[in-house]
Nucleic acid binder design. Structure first.
Lengths: 220, 220
DNA sequence: GCGTGTGAACTGGTTCACAGCG
DNA sequence: CGCTGTGAACCAGTTCACACGC
């Protein structure tokens, strides 16, 4: 006797599938905006460079979608992903480190889904804080714990310089953040199993691209 | 009779290994800066959350490192990765799309390795171009082909809004770019096998983080 | 026909385990 | 002994192949 349908847990879904489902979700939002009502696994696959059978397999991890064999209903599939991946509830976000890149992210926050509202910015330098013109509340680094707790911020994007990241991450985690995107050029690892960290690095991406290009051209 | 040592091609190295090697390379640069001369596979692994044997396997794809059984020489390993992954030659970079995020990236370009120099910025709006204060040369979008060719720019970071990405990517590719990092919130795919594209999206990362957090807490 | 859903088969990348060297 | 290097074993995730519904 096992749990069925809605109740089944996704905990044994492979992480790559979860990531693809998040990408699919973003694509479905676009389709919805364009007024497209139904979409096939192969269309999704083409758009995201994922084989159609992989799309179908990923979707099948979500459980029952109900019958409809002429492509997925954009709305239904989007709703299902949202529900099963717990993407419905809005989460407060903060930006830590307000150098050029940090400010850029802060200011482009309106491009994020409205589910991820930027609620605060932090920087080590009070002088710096004063020069930044924005309507968002800005605070010095040492107020992370107070503010993150008060505003129940759950996600953070960190763009400080190397020497500050670990400290900032520790403070964030202590204040109950559940996920961190680090964009500092160095990598940090999570000290706790219940806090997830993603490291992004433009240099790393540029390196991978040049390596791939160089290696693929090398083999004729 | 097969090719040996220096000559062996990396073309059958798994792509995940190539990516890890690029991350290892970044770490080694840090170690070098800190004056650390030797480092073990387990140290590297701990720093990057990669198992030590995977680090060793990845390194072994590079071929001969020469004998030294008490950890890797930071300098030698860095040199080897650089050479085998063709990371030595500097590559010109441009930023396409100068909204908040684009300007942030443009302005934080000095944080990139000096191998990746930003040589130009592009935006659709001439008005916008005029308001941006920078020493870097800025151009309207329609000059991509001319400028990219002239300056032999090989890599691009694109942060335009959705509707412009594909056009911009097409122009970039036509002008000989070998890799594109798209940071537009939507995904684009490469029309050519010899041009590599990486899609980055902050929203996607935030979604993955909340999904992982929600799912892992769900299973007690 | 075209499309999804899914157990079963497969495979590339990871992991193991141990030889070899300092 | 610790640490690298690597063929062989393994397995998670992908891919296949086919049942079923429109």
């Amino acid at each position: 006797m096992e749990q069925e349908g809605l109740g089944r847990s996704l905990s044994r879904t492979p992480q790559p599938s979860i990531e693809r489902l998040c990408r699919i979700f973003g694509l479905l939002e676009e389709f919805e905006r364009e007024g497209i009502a139904a979409v096939s696994s192969s269309r999704i696959g083409k758009e995201l460079s994922i084989p159609a059978h992989t799309v179908r397999k990923d979707v099948s991890f979500l459980g029952e979608l109900g019958p409809s064999r002429l492509g997925y209903s954009v709305g239904k599939l989007k709703g299902l992903i949202q529900q099963r991946l717990k993407l419905e509830e809005p989460r407060g976000v903060c930006v830590v480190g307000l150098s050029e890149l940090g400010v850029g992210l802060l200011r482009s926050g309106h491009l994020l889904s409205e589910r991820y509202r930027i609620r605060a910015g932090f920087d080590a330098s009070v002088n710096r804080l004063e020069t930044i013109r924005t309507e968002l509340p800005l605070y010095p680094l040492h107020m992370i714990r107070e503010v993150v707790t008060r505003e129940s911020i759950e996600l953070a994007v960190v763009t400080t310089e190397r020497s500050w990241v670990r400290r900032a991450a520790a403070d964030l985690i202590e204040s109950g953040v559940i996920g961190i995107v680090s964009f500092c050029g160095c990598e940090i690892t999570s000290p706790r199993r219940d806090v997830w960290i993603t490291n992004l690095s433009l240099v790393k991406e540029l390196r991978v691209l040049s390596a791939l290009a160089a290696l693929s051209s090398e083999s004729h």
